[in-house]
């Protein structure tokens, strides 16, 4: 089943006098359960592609279909709802709010969700993902009290708490040591085995070992 379909996507950044074409005419499909690595060097356009896939940015031309719906036809304010309900984000720098506890950080997507759930349900859902990632004992800690690996687990927990169909991870191992990076990749692999579609942006060749399919930005750009 096709989750995301990109048809002839082009992205151009327009400055005052300069126009920078990041990529042109990209077409591919992402199916439910895929585990894809977007591989490429810095500046190759992989993050831009991830932003388009995550509905954080729109292509300059071409069509993006999310679960069969052309996102060009939906209004910008609906993007936030789709992001909240269907997409989980994991960042290189974890993006945790320092003043909130781990529990509260993970709770954010549930609070922002249109499908309001009670405090008890939120508590249950948050604790379930914290337990799944083996950080339930950190629920009352603050991000600065955690190691890099633990922070990334919290970030993954936050991405999972709304049970999204797609997880987009932007260099998830970039700020981690070798062991923590390996653990993070194993967690993502397990999530994929449970049915979650995962797309990882990386420039780390090691990451390729964990993914089922690699989209090399060099090849995409070479086709331009």
């Amino acid at each position: 089943m096709c989750l995301i379909e990109l048809v002839n996507i082009t992205k151009v950044y327009r400055g005052k006098n300069v126009e920078t074409k990041v990529f042109e005419g990209i077409s591919f499909e992402i199916h439910v359960g895929d585990y894809i690595g977007l591989y490429g060097r810095s500046g190759s356009g992989k993050s831009t592609l991830l932003h388009i896939l995550g509905l954080l940015d729109r292509p300059s031309s071409g069509t993006v279909k999310f679960k069969g719906t052309d996102i060009g036809q939906i209004k910008a304010h609906q993007f936030s709802q789709i992001r909240n309900e269907h997409i989980g984000f994991v960042f290189q720098d974890f993006r945790l709010i320092d003043e909130l506890t781990i529990f509260e950080n993970v709770e954010i997507p549930l609070i922002l969700s249109k499908q309001k759930c009670s405090k008890a349900v939120r508590e249950q859902k948050v604790m379930a993902v914290l337990s799944k990632l083996d950080i339930q004992d950190k629920r009352n800690s603050y991000p600065q009290e955690l190691s890099g690996g633990q922070k990334q687990r919290v970030a993954i927990a936050r991405a999972l708490v709304n049970e999204p169909s797609l997880i987009l991870a932007d260099e998830p191992t970039g700020n981690l040591d070798e062991q923590a990076a390996r653990n993070t990749m194993q967690i993502l692999s397990e999530l994929n085995k449970e049915g979650t579609t995962i797309i990882i942006v990386t420039h780390d060749p090691e990451v390729k070992k964990y993914t089922d399919k690699v989209i090399d930005m060099r090849e995409i750009v070479a086709q331009m």
Partner: peptide, 15 residues
């Protein structure tokens, strides 16, 4: 950064 994060996590304009 926090505002961006909330927006990415799906905060609506009304929120």
């Amino acid at each position: 950064r926090n505002v961006q994060l909330l927006r990415i996590m799906g905060a609506s304009t009304i929120q």
